[in-house]
Design a protein around this nucleic acid. Structure first.
Lengths: 210, 210
DNA sequence: CGGAAACGTTAACAAAAGATAATTAATCAG
DNA sequence: CTGATTAATTATCTTTTGTTAACGTTTCCG
């Protein structure tokens, strides 16, 4: 059960994708649940089939994959963003990624079961299809950008672009996770950063030299 | 106007995503058009807004981006696959990629305008939403895999995986396009290939040596 | 508060990738 | 068929990245 305030935040967010009428919202709202995750607890674990899509009211979440015993972070999400192990959720196959709260996190979740019920509820099925379509299209475009950056840019260029487009991410996320996200090692990202800084320092030195 | 045979091929393909009733198909079919592309001609050019989604009846198509005057291939598609500049099509923004026929290609196209009309046609709108949703979900999963491979694998591992999962691609596509697709240079791919081959050769040498 | 763990930086070396160019192989068009 | 493009390989050199390890810093937790 979620509060009216929480529901309204979610409803406003969903406007980006689809508008629910009051009647539709009255059907949709009751299937939503509030979920609280303590820092470092899981929204989703590898090997399980993801049954939910979450909407982050508060907190930060990261997706990662365990490769040879070490974690490789693939994504992060913040307040007012959806989170899921999409492929697992959509295809009902075991997830290969973990989804973990990086801080105490509050989510509105809506389950696969609820989605399936609503997709068969004649009062709202059309709107749910549209909802699913627009959300999937949105994430498709996000993925498209990301693939494009891997194919056409160097790690340094990807970092600079992240720096200019999502400095909020850089500010809140440990650097070694960023490195994973960019497809490089933490050591390499550290070098990229010092490479980028160098020109500024030498400029300062020039100004200071006699 | 497309033939019944062509329409049935498309209809069967679309079953992967959604089943049309005969009545629905009777509405859908007339909006489809046949398009023939000569080798090296464009399905889509950078700078334009993509107005169509194509289904390849015959031929091969590649997506590429022009960076500093050179082409960088990002994707290819074959018979029985959909093709579009998805982000441009979905967001109605200018495409940054070209989509070009690699051989003489025959497509069934369906236009944004037709889609919009059918999305407002009460007889079929529900099915069209579902169609859009399932197609977007499908491609979302494809992109998810591709991003995952960039984050967690080396170029060599990506090549080996492509080799085992899509050898049809490797057989039909010039190698320097494959290199682009993997996010590396053609020279680098050539080295990866020789690296992979080496062990076999030295095995042969071992067998031949006295 | 203090020890342990986690982070970011730096260094040293090995491995791989990019850039360029030369050579060979394959393909295409006349 | 053949000359001309285009593609793929190989070589050389430079740059970047990966790997491992050391070091100082910060953060966390008992």
């Amino acid at each position: 059960m979620i509060s009216e305030i929480q529901g309204n935040i979610y409803r406003k967010f969903l406007e980006k994708f689809v508008s629910f009428t009051d009647e539709e919202w009255a059907i949709f709202l009751p299937v939503l649940e509030l979920k609280k995750l303590k820092k470092k607890s899981f929204f989703m674990e590898a090997g399980k089939v993801c049954q939910e899509v979450g909407f982050i009211l508060q907190g930060t979440v990261r997706c990662y994959y365990v490769k040879d015993g070490t974690e490789v972070t693939t994504y992060f999400s913040f307040e007012n963003e959806l989170i899921s192990s999409y492929k697992s959720f959509l295809t009902e196959t075991p997830s290969i990624t973990y989804v973990e709260a990086m801080e105490n996190t509050e989510l509105i979740v809506f389950s696969k079961k609820s989605l399936q019920l609503l997709l068969e509820d004649s009062r709202i099925k059309y709107k749910m299809e549209r909802f699913g379509r627009t959300v999937a299209e949105y994430y498709l475009c996000c993925y498209d950008d990301r693939v494009f950056s891997f194919v056409t840019q160097t790690p340094e260029q990807r970092y600079l672009e992240l720096l200019s487009s999502r400095s909020d991410i850089l500010a809140r996320i440990p650097q070694h996770y960023i490195a994973n996200y960019l497809g490089i090692t933490p050591v390499s990202l550290s070098r990229i950063r010092s490479r980028i800084m160098k020109p500024h320092i030498s400029l300062l030195e020039t100004l200071q030299s006699p």
